[in-house]
Amino acid sequence: MAILRRTRFALFFLILLWAGTIPLLAQVPGEVSGVQLDGTGTISWDTHENQGQAGGTQAVLLSWLSYGMRSLRIVLSGAATNEPRNYGSIWNKTVVTTLSEFGRTSRENGSFGTDHANASCLFLEGGGVNGGVYNCDPSTWPAGVQFGIDGRYLMERTDFRAVFWELLRDHMGASPATVDDVFPGYTSLNLGAQELGLIQP
């Protein structure tokens, strides 16, 4: 079954945020139907205690993540100096995204950290990404609804499958007819209603 068109080149870089112990730069390169896939992972995001604020563990982890994502943009847009590879033409064909294995509470626990929770966030960047902040505004969160699960858990607003199907279809060229082969139940669960229009046409 051909899900992706071979005539379109795209680069998809997945950054996994893990709580476990996997190598920081465990890259798994591959190629699927003309689409290049790469990824890496980072560890120590399971901050149940002493998470800190502006100078704590979480801030350090986020600074590493933002530095890595910024570096990818600089190199893949051709703006890096002393870079022997010519990446100048591929930033507009690149999407970088993060994915975590679980969400975290948005309210601090008694140990000055956060615990596992239902919802999390995704960061996306790339030349074809419609930038902005999604599902984090007063129209999305009526008063009293944001922490609607036991008063401390952020409620889910967008299923991760809706985000990744947009990337597969609109960036990588997956056929719309294959959506339920890729994500079983996508149509019957009406996950298309949660799509955000993340990729420019």
Rank of each mutant, 00 (worst) to 15 (best):
Y153T: 02
T158H: 04
T94M: 01
Y67F: 05
D38C: 13
W45E: 05
G110W: 05
N109L: 05
S63V: 02
S71K: 02
R107M: 14
Q146V: 05
D46G: 05
W91A: 01
G126D: 03
S63I: 00
A117R: 01
K93Q: 15
G41P: 07
R107C: 10
G55S: 12
T97G: 02
G88F: 03
V163I: 08
I90N: 04
L65M: 10
P84R: 04
F123C: 09
L61W: 05
N82P: 00
D46Q: 04
N118T: 15
G126E: 00
E108N: 09
G126F: 05
T105A: 10
S139D: 11
V145E: 15
Y67N: 09
L37F: 10
G148A: 12
A143N: 03
N130F: 01
P142H: 14
A117G: 12
T140I: 07
S44C: 07
G131Y: 10
S120T: 15
R70Y: 07
V145T: 15
T47W: 05
R152H: 13
S33N: 14
H116E: 11
T114W: 02
E83Y: 00
T94V: 07
M69E: 01
N50V: 00
L72N: 01
R152P: 04
G132T: 10
W45S: 04
R85Y: 06
S63A: 15
S71M: 06
V95S: 01
L72P: 03
T47K: 03
V35K: 01
G113V: 08
F112T: 09
N86M: 06
N130E: 09
E49P: 00
G103Q: 09
T57M: 08
H48Y: 10
A162K: 01
V95H: 01
W91V: 00
V60A: 13
E101P: 07
H116M: 08
I149F: 13
Y134E: 10
